[in-house]
Design a binder for these strands. Sequence first.
DNA 1: CCTATATATGCTCAGACAGAGCATAACAAC
DNA 2: GTTGTTATGCTCTGTCTGAGCATATATAGG
Lengths: 357, 357
Amino acid sequence: MTTTPRQHQASQRRRDQSSRLEKAGRSGTPVQITLNAVLAALEGNEPKVLCVTRGADHLALPYGPFDPREHRTFERGLRDWVARQTRLSLGYVEQLYTFGDRGREGLGRSLETPIEHLVSVGYLALAGDAAPVDDADARWRSWYRFFPWEDWRAGKPALLSDAILPALDRWTDNRAGTVGDHRRSRVETAFGLNDLGWEEERILERFELMYEAGLVGETPLHESADQKDQPPDVNLKARTGLTMASDHRRILATAIARLRGKLKYRPVIFEMMGPTFTLFDLQRAVEAIVGFALHKQNFRRSVESTGLLMRTGSMSDQTGGRPAALFSVNREALRDRADMGLVIPRLGQKLRAPAKS
Amino acid sequence: MTTTPRQHQASQRRRDQSSRLEKAGRSGTPVQITLNAVLAALEGNEPKVLCVTRGADHLALPYGPFDPREHRTFERGLRDWVARQTRLSLGYVEQLYTFGDRGREGLGRSLETPIEHLVSVGYLALAGDAAPVDDADARWRSWYRFFPWEDWRAGKPALLSDAILPALDRWTDNRAGTVGDHRRSRVETAFGLNDLGWEEERILERFELMYEAGLVGETPLHESADQKDQPPDVNLKARTGLTMASDHRRILATAIARLRGKLKYRPVIFEMMGPTFTLFDLQRAVEAIVGFALHKQNFRRSVESTGLLMRTGSMSDQTGGRPAALFSVNREALRDRADMGLVIPRLGQKLRAPAKS
DNA sequence: CCTATATATGCTCAGACAGAGCATAACAAC
DNA sequence: GTTGTTATGCTCTGTCTGAGCATATATAGG
């Protein structure tokens, strides 16, 4: 990394150093690799994520070390580690993002002493059900406990209109000129103001804006307290969901965003369903993930037309009304059509009245 | 990692070990982190990627070390390293995937002694133009030199029908029963047989199948030469594109797949365009990336309706026919509508006659 | 100037599909 | 039966997409 172009001709070339562009490939400081897992599952109508307690009072995502001597791939390491610690059967597993230790974009560094030279590889893993975990410190929690403003299933959360949006407004007004304009533009896009419409996948953008504006517990006091910004609102911080250690809430947001997006072009939802289910069960599962209610008749139309489902022949009498047909996944079709997703419209003005059951 | 659930009660809990799920977080073997970059740019109608020479005869993607003492984030490390070595101005930069050393799914390990405990973080970076690089070993090459079967712009490549598909057919026929069925099903999906249609984003799946079937230069001889498979076809290997060191061709395929997909929902194409361009220039850029021709009138209709473009007022007389209006990007609209992509239909039967210019 | 050729651009038309809602069916509780 | 609840079938309409026709404006060559 210290060679300049001018030194080129003078440099002796060895086999591994035949180009400046690759010259330094073997050097660098060794680092520790940690695997960080967002384990997601559905329990009833709630999307849940497995959390552990870190230290006295912080929630965190479970994590484990990656030892290259033991495992050939990250994913194997992760599966092995989860299998040992829980009895969960992981279906879908997907790498999310790799965070260089000090590269976590400033999020949450105030919560702990930074560990130098630590790299964490984040994974999203879907479990078939939120099975109890044999560990007193591990608990499934609804992910909307961490992002209460993301749950529109019963209508627009009052927290948004009452507290978050006004606070973001103040945050943009704090600055004049391009800084303020830029902030406003980001807020408008992320939160779907001015008819732009709420896009469920922007959960990470929303969280990052709230972090920057000092509206979440993870924001260090000094970050939003420069000369021109208002002091952070302590009362509001208490209402914007549970806090997590380090940048784990950000990783969780990344995972939710990925899952919300993935639903649309991969049939991953079936990784989280039991062996049989009604169409409305499936709809509630999707609604739990995307965070808003869907049009029932259109949902069944689109799902039935995929050909991914088979009627089992039996009926569910758990409905409270007319019995519903039970379906199961057509695994063969699923294998061949791994490219199919569900049609998930954008959140419209009209929200289905929440089911009473 | 060695604790079992039964040992739970006996274990002493320290602050960092309050849960089995996170207990081992601080241990593990240190590893080296390497940043691996796919630098992509357009030159004329060709999509290009920056390659270096490794050793005597292998092409490779440029890479550099990541030193956490020097850079706060991977992306900064990457940008800094590219800026020092080239004069490229990187626009869009995106993390692709992190490969655990031995976790490269077996691809290309035969080409070099495996380096234990090396983790490489792959990045995709888009450059505004394929500017010459001041390094004798670095060269821009059309990415279709590495994936000749992916370029359908002038029609279905003869290589596919003549050689690749028959060879894959033989590979599936080699095995009876479920193994063969599974192989066939994967080939059909990846290559769009039986009316499934060619999906440009499946480039990685296609490459991996060809790797498994022993059709590319990277396949080690022993991998496809187990008892039931035919010996690899040496002649065919010579026709399936340039070979790269290690698993770099796989990383390149990952990058192309990501870019091909990203086009559809993010306006990244403009990161690769000059300040002004005609609509057909833009179309050719998109065609270069997705690998097939588009319907011209429909393309302009969809692009113009995004509102991301502005007419500059001037015209291009480089067309050979009627002059074309020059456009530039509406940067403001781009910032607000970072969620827009281009409408890219699936590859249909009818291919536009290749432009003669 | 006239013609052939090439590219740019405007416009139409039909089919597919999505969003919204009406109507009916089949259960439970009373 | 009546009421309430959920499941399910179906329609209607506006939008978008795929495809192609038609026209405009340049160049090259007679």
